[in-house]
Design a protein around this nucleic acid. Structure first.
Lengths: 164, 164
DNA sequence: TCTTTTCGACAACCACGTTGACTACTCTAG
DNA sequence: CTAGAGTAGTCAACGTGGTTGTCGAAAAGA
């Protein structure tokens, strides 16, 4: 069995507590680099939690209640998030002509721009990981993670897990 | 090249944005299971951030200022964290006889117990990942992560990245 | 000794979540 | 058609976890 990356030295025994730390460090590294890049491209006020919220709003817009459901928080919390997004110019509320109770939350062009830019940065960062690890090892990392976390990976209800 | 886990089907192309989601989902899965386990063993009020704080306090205790430095937050924020930990019975403040300004923050026996228990749970959870992935793939996952994040993995300054 | 640094605490504030209560509106059953 | 139930959005109060600024007391260095 050929394992070129091993360099012949014995691998240290791992502790259980290292695993969450490694996963978190990887996650944080990506998110930190993303936001450094966003800040350099006209979005210095974007915080990690806003990215999740904007992703949950999507191209079509949502109501605050639905946004709360998607993010796993109360409708009041979702409403406050929309307030902050709106104050920064990333989202706006428009009245729903078909239902006078509802107000559709939509991304502004600036919000769309941030989302598109984030996608591009993530591609770039994944490319860097691929350069460091090799495409094969990167793909195996992703597959291994998908195996253990299952479909739960792509939920957006990460609110509260963020700061700056 | 033998790749037994491929099962012959073509692997879907991955998007860059999936990588942070997978890492985060893995991290959250471990932390959620840890806290479910802790809650079942007499520690229902322990929150993820408290684990980091207790880890930073360690066996020897620290001052609030030093705790702030280790966690990457202000000494005032660290002091508040100690207040909450103390209110739950996980930490206590003792005057330092050698320096009347300082108050040593120490873990109570209950705090030590929670730390020991957490370590055991993490070993158990890592074992479960090993069962699912195979020891080899798990080790490769850990090594790959360490490669990309470097020594930054084991910093404790994750405060603010948590909620319940 | 005098000045600087450090420690812990207090206050005010912000971000981000929670519940509960309330109004306005829509929908459905009788 | 109308009464009642359910839903949308907002307001208020509060909890947690951060921030900065200020302060007095104690330690440490010139």
């Amino acid at each position: 069995m050929t394992e070129p990356e091993r360099h012949g030295r014995e691998r240290r025994e791992r502790w259980g507590f290292e695993l969450p730390l490694l996963l978190f460090a990887g996650f944080r590294s990506l998110i930190d680099q993303l936001h450094a890049e966003l800040a350099d491209h006209g979005h210095p006020d974007l915080r990690p939690a806003y990215g999740f919220a904007m992703q949950a709003i999507g191209r079509d817009g949502v109501t605050a209640s639905e946004l709360g459901r998607r993010l796993g928080v109360s409708k009041q919390a979702a409403g406050k998030t929309v307030d902050r997004l709106a104050a920064l110019g990333y989202a706006e509320r428009v009245a729903d002509p078909a239902d006078a109770r509802r107000k559709l939350v939509r991304l502004t062009p600036r919000g769309q721009d941030a989302l598109v830019l984030s996608g591009a940065v993530f591609e770039e960062l994944r490319g860097q990981w691929g350069d460091q690890l090799g495409q094969e090892r990167l793909t195996e990392l992703e597959d291994a993670l998908e195996t253990v976390v299952g479909p739960a990976a792509f939920r957006l209800d990460a609110a509260g897990w963020f700061a700056d």
